[in-house]
């Protein structure tokens, strides 16, 4: 194993970190594992493809989260809020239906073939990082994702909205009684969570190949991360996401077949050893 492979792991981990923190946020608040999260990520990547084709990649990084935030608002207003008194499972299955539809819609709009996004010119080559030649764009992914994760944590820790989100994630009914506008908090969370998923997709677009199966492939990994990290725990999801990315990439070097099962293995071990996940909330 060399430094480049470790960096690959960190780059993958960074994407997983951004993606799973969004899922964990929505899960913590609405109690619904959003099965459409993979579809949001995929849509982000495809929109980034179209935007960067016409107006450049940097604009795409700005437009995509905004577009996906709008999708998140719709998700909240059309499904999550009106149906919040239904069982969580039903809501989850509705998002599953949305994921299925999104996968086909992407094919209808962009076609089934694999697409590629070129990174901005100055990030196309390699840079020297700690003595290794490493693709510049991947370094950018790491830097952006880490900054984003830090900003997210800071936002949740130090702003009033963040405080309300954390309170509502603990116990949504009590939070409502305490006078927190739960509907507003939920709207913010679902919008931000969706935007994060889209952003991860846009960020990933130049790094991976775009195909209509990319969403569901990632969804499984992200669901596992959220369970492993401890359901509803954003910090746990971030750590588990980064950890899994690194472990998986490092294992790939050693044996690709084993690497595929790493997430599932991690899930099984965590379930047996600590059924509540790393952060300790109960799987229910």
């Amino acid at each position: 194993m060399n430094a480049a492979q470790l960096l690959n792991g960190i780059a993958l981990g960074s994407l997983l970190m951004v993606l799973s923190s969004g899922l964990a946020m929505i899960y913590g608040l609405r109690g619904v594992a959003n099965f459409a999260h993979g579809a949001l990520y995929m849509s982000g990547a495809y929109i980034a493809y179209s935007v960067s084709d016409r107006a450049g990649f940097w604009l795409a990084l700005l437009v995509v989260p905004l577009a996906l935030a709008v999708v998140g608002v719709l998700l909240e207003l059309v499904f999550f809020r009106p149906l919040q008194h239904r069982s969580h499972i039903e809501l989850g299955l509705i998002t599953f239906g949305l994921a299925l539809m999104a996968e086909r819609l992407v094919v209808l709009i962009w076609g089934e073939r694999t697409l590629r996004v070129t990174p901005p010119e100055f990030l196309q080559g390699t840079s020297n990082f700690l003595g290794v030649e490493y693709p510049s764009y991947r370094l950018a992914i790491i830097a952006i994702a880490v900054v984003l994760a830090a900003a997210l944590v800071l936002w949740l820790r130090s702003t009033t909205t963040g405080l309300h989100i954390r309170a509502a994630s603990q116990d949504i009914e009590t939070a409502a009684i305490m006078g927190i506008n739960v509907d507003r908090v939920s709207l913010v969370v679902v919008a931000v969570g969706s935007a994060l998923a889209g952003f991860a997709g846009a960020l990933a677009a130049p790094y991976i190949a775009l195909d209509p199966g990319m969403g569901s492939a990632f969804l499984i990994t992200v669901l596992i991360i959220v369970v492993v990290g401890g359901i509803g725990s954003i910090g746990g999801a971030m750590i588990a996401g980064m950890g899994l990315g690194v472990i998986q990439s490092v294992t790939t070097v050693w044996s690709p077949s084993v690497a595929v099962v790493v997430p599932y293995l991690a899930l099984t071990i965590v379930l047996l050893w600590r059924p509540t996940g790393l952060a300790g909330k109960r799987v229910s």
Partner: peptide, 11 residues
């Protein structure tokens, strides 16, 4: 509930 749904899917 959800734990079951996600775990069966993942495994």
């Amino acid at each position: 509930g959800f734990g079951f749904l996600m775990l069966t899917l993942a495994l």
